[in-house]
């Protein structure tokens, strides 16, 4: 499902007009970004949570030149599915097998 299809689907689900939906999707994405940039997490019950994870600094070697680089630590956004969603996903497996 592409972004376009997604917006259309949300519009149908929420019964709002298209312009407003586009605006709200953008606002929601920006809000998630804002929450994460401040080091907070967002927990949507039944769906999952958006969190930050720190990846530590590490040494990396360029195999062709042998040069060694220190890669700085970074913060990465992660999504952890909630128990509800996780169970639903597990369910499909047993159905298929």
């Amino acid at each position: 499902m592409t972004n376009k299809e997604f917006i259309r689907a949300v519009q149908l689900e929420s019964k709002l007009d298209k312009q407003k939906t586009v605006l709200l999707v953008e606002a929601l994405n920006a809000s998630i970004g804002k929450v994460l940039s401040e080091g907070d997490s967002l927990n949507i019950w039944g769906f999952g949570s958006f969190e930050l994870k720190k990846r530590g600094e590490r040494l990396s070697v360029n195999p062709s030149t042998g040069k060694r680089f220190m890669i700085p630590p970074k913060l990465v956004p992660v999504f952890r599915p909630g128990t509800n969603l996780k169970n639903k996903i597990k369910q499909i497996d047993s159905d298929e097998q």
């Binding site: 998630i32 970004g33 994460l36 220190m70 700085p72 990465v76 956004p77």
Partner: peptide, 19 residues
Amino acid sequence: AKLREIANKPFEHLEAIEL
């Protein structure tokens, strides 16, 4: 990529350095 960039803001100024 954009969300990554936003999330990494506190460490934005860091760059890989050669040792």
